[in-house]
Amino acid sequence: MFGHKKDRVESPPIVGGVCSLLEIPHGHKFRIAEINGGAGLHRRLLALGFHRGDLVALDGEALLGGPVLVKNLNSDTRIALGRSIARKILVEPADEHER
């Protein structure tokens, strides 16, 4: 029940427009700037087609601190990411007309 709020405090502060996937509004275009965390996570995301520089948008989230749904606009795929993982993915705002 309380995990949700803690997530918000732990996530890094917004610097220069870069923030984590947990802090962006739904449906807007963002660009993956950095993937923090270990090589295991990094490889997994690469294999699933999520690279640095890809355009992504938040497509939904589950209740009670559940996972977020991230859409990759380049490859038209969607993955569900647990919050602990979504927090490690940093994004920066992208122009709405970018491809």
Binding site: A62, L63, G65, G66, P67, L69, A80, G82
Partner: peptide, 19 residues
């Protein structure tokens, strides 16, 4: 099935597992 996993993940976490 995958969608049920997404929706239920939070509950499963409370039971110590994941979606």
């Amino acid at each position: 099935l995958a969608r049920a996993g997404f929706l239920m993940d939070a509950f499963m976490h409370r039971l110590g597992l994941h979606g």
